[in-house]
Design a protein around this nucleic acid. Sequence first.
DNA 1: TTGCTCCTCACGTCACGTGAGGTGGC
DNA 2: TTGCTCCTCACGTCACGTGAGGTGGC
Lengths: 128, 128
Amino acid sequence: MQPIYTIRQLTKEFAVTARTLRFYEDKGLVSPARRGQTRIYSARDRSRLILVLRGRRVGLSLAEIGEILDLYYMRDGGRAQLLLAREKFQERIAVLERQKIEIEKALAELRNGIDTMHRALVERHAAE
Amino acid sequence: MQPIYTIRQLTKEFAVTARTLRFYEDKGLVSPARRGQTRIYSARDRSRLILVLRGRRVGLSLAEIGEILDLYYMRDGGRAQLLLAREKFQERIAVLERQKIEIEKALAELRNGIDTMHRALVERHAAE
DNA sequence: TTGCTCCTCACGTCACGTGAGGTGGC
DNA sequence: TTGCTCCTCACGTCACGTGAGGTGGC
């Protein structure tokens, strides 16, 4: 009845390695059933995986993603999850804004360095 | 005669920990002399450290910084160093430009997510 | 003797990558 | 029997942080 996925199917669908899926399981982010040794992923595992990958794409840590996922099945029907996720998202936005500034600084320093090196190379050439 | 620095002086001057300086030594980026067990940094160590920190600021790996430093004392008087450094700098610029784009994408996804969560919270409130 | 700074291991962090060595079912 | 996929360790990566435990000289 339930849609069922193998580890291979999920790696292809989401372009991740099997190692990644096992790692997420080890961290408690997904908990597939077993058929013997082999992992069997349910639709629920798959939707959790989607949330994990979405969180990772925006740069949340697996620990933060875990916190959000843990709230999903609580009694308030997801309100706490929404509030926590929003907070994490806002924090992330602030971090990324700062990173953008750092990148701009680094780019300026790099371009400056290239100019300086260029001049040094020209001087050497002239001194020949 | 030569200016001499203790590990403590350098940590203060460059705002790094002693652990960092020992780590760089372990990686062969600086090689201070010893007085007994204690490290003694020369002016040369200090100027290498400045280059290491500059490289790190723009995001080069310690291995890349090491490659550049190794060229400094070669027979061609630094031309090879300039060429290699320029290449590394250009590669770094390309990486950072791509990172900027990734950050913009993540920011867009985060802001979008906040909007979606906001609407979900308002709906819940209205449904009360 | 107490304090301060220095030192050397060596494990921990984060998100997996990468073998090594072995098993089940077509 | 060969191939394929799955599995479980467990060490490696990168740039250090963080104790633990010990030493020299004022």
